[in-house]
Nucleic acid binder design. Structure first.
Lengths: 326, 326
DNA sequence: GTGAAAGCGCTAACAA
DNA sequence: TTGTTAGCGCTTTCAC
């Protein structure tokens, strides 16, 4: 590994000059520069980012914390974030908190020890304190830290109302509203959409059943089981509101039991990733705009890294996607 | 940010002593150690990994290059790799090469400039030269670099034969064999399975149609379109062999056209991720064991980082998963 | 058992 | 315009 010192020696100049020539900032005579560049080429010199990082006290890496990639919403979000961060000059460190038993704490430590310049967290599992203790740059997706960490989320209130409106218009009499048990109360904010839905439906005299899914199982196997159980337990429901993969599971499990969708059961999914929009029949959905969410998250993050004080939250608009299930 | 120097000062010792006490290697008197640890706690000292990295000339980060996370095989693989790497003491840097327009080259440069200690590549897009130029640690998934970079892949020969055997036993007369155009020839090795399948079928007097998918589109929208087209184009096929999401698309598109699966069309998917195994009907599949693949990749990688010379390839066994589509 | 000093590879300030 | 020097924060000799 050739160092900048080697380059300077070969070119017959001081290493400060070599540094200026190669990095492009600072005065250096054209011919000297040429010599240095030639020497660098001959030695196939590459600057050691480890040294640059130490000096600048930044790594150029952003940590993304997600429960898992099994869930299509998270894999889409991560892919979008990686792309956006890259465009802004950052590399992405991936941290899945559910898959292994390993700790979120470990990943948070990377903030303290300068491994990452910032963190985008989309996990549900950990206690707030660990996050709030850190004075470095964190941005949250869909999780409320009592206004002490900036957050990005979808317009869940609107989503809940929109879903209710659809079920009502379709003449549903009893709707199953199912979501993660971690969003049941408190600061996982997708719960807002579900609570809003229940409230709206009840206000219109429509019966509501609520069920909750485990917060650390994201496999289709689990979702299929859960959907099957619910269909057995609630034989009289004619509507379901659930996140993408679970909505898909309801679709197949319902058909398999001879309950036609949408004739006997209307399904609306929340997330509306491309996955559920292209299978057949296409699932009707309220869409969380992942590209916008990613844009907001990375925008707030990079601005905070640059020193801006931002604590305001960002609510992303939701959309209706007409499918064939409601 | 308190540095080790601050800790040493507060404890009233030299910074060398503080370093030894905190890192645990080197002699230091118990009471001195206690003083230092106390000082560290008071200042809530955290070692700066950037400095440690520069000294050790390693970052503890592994780069994973995948085309995208849209495809369930890759999102599963990445999740598994992240978990395995974590257990081995490495962090994961995620690099999606298709999603953005940004270059694979950029990520390969990270090897040269010490940003990552090694790379696991599962991409299809780039020319071999860029990889072979690098003398740092690379391990490849399913891509042949003429024996110059160690590789892990599934037993594609066995997979092709197994699929053929199933189609034959089910009495198929014409099978559609569809896969990525990049695997058509050369070094994307999943092509072996498909070529083997075609060869076996033809040898048994069964007709084979081959089709190819784009190598940089992984969305369900695309797969659905493609499946639809094929079903229109080949009205007489009674068997399909395709990767997971595409197999799923064939399932829905076929049913939508009134061609019942498996009565009119037998489907076998290659990959057999959990996703296709749990929807209803469950898709019959030849399973690539992602956990084993990940284990082999990370094992070879870490051993090479430690200095072992490994160039032999690792073939992972495939499994049959009985579903309801063949 | 401990402190001082060198150095990882780089950049930036300061002289020359 | 260029070379020298001082660190970034840490670990590791090497004397004491």
């Amino acid at each position: 590994m050739a160092s900048i010192k080697d380059v300077a020696n070969l070119a017959g100049v001081g290493l400060g000059t070599a540094s200026r020539a190669l990095s492009g900032n600072g005065y250096v005579a054209p011919e000297t520069k040429k010599k240095i560049e030639e020497a660098a080429r001959r030695l196939s010199y590459t600057p050691n980012v480890l040294a640059q990082n130490l000096l600048k006290n930044r790594s150029g890496i952003i940590g993304i914390l997600v429960p898992a990639l099994d869930h299509c919403f998270f894999s889409r979000l991560v892919q979008e974030l990686e792309s956006d961060l890259y465009k802004k000059g950052y590399k992405t460190m991936l941290c899945c908190t559910v898959s292994g038993e390993h700790g979120e704490q470990d990943y948070l430590d990377m903030l303290e020890n300068n491994m990452v310049d910032g963190i985008i967290t989309a996990t549900h599992s950990f206690n707030d304190e660990a996050y709030l203790k850190s004075n470095r740059v964190i941005v949250s997706f869909d999780r409320d830290f009592q206004g002490r960490i900036p957050m990005v989320r979808s317009d869940h209130e609107g989503a809940g109302r929109m879903a209710a409106e659809r079920f009502i218009r379709q003449g549903c009499r009893k709707v199953l509203n199912i979501y993660g048990e971690d969003a049941k109360e408190g600061h996982i904010l997708v719960g807002i959409a579900h609570r809003e839905l229940s409230a709206c439906l009840k206000a219109s005299g429509i019966e509501v059943a609520e069920e909750y899914t485990s917060q650390d199982r994201f496999t289709m196997t689990y979702y299929s089981e859960k959907a099957g159980e619910c269909l057995e337990k609630y034989r009289d429901i004619d509507g379901v509101f659930a996140s993408d993969p679970l909505a898909e599971a309801f679709l197949w499990e319902s058909e398999r039991r001879g309950r036609k969708v949408p004739r006997d059961l209307k399904i609306i999914s929340y997330d509306g990733t491309e996955m559920t929009g292209s299978i057949s029949p296409r699932i009707s959905a309220i869409v969380q705009q992942i590209d916008k969410i990613s844009g907001n998250l990375t925008d707030i993050l990079t601005r905070r890294i640059r020193g801006e004080e931002i604590i305001e939250d960002k609510i992303t608009e939701i959309l209706w996607r007409q499918g064939e299930t409601c």
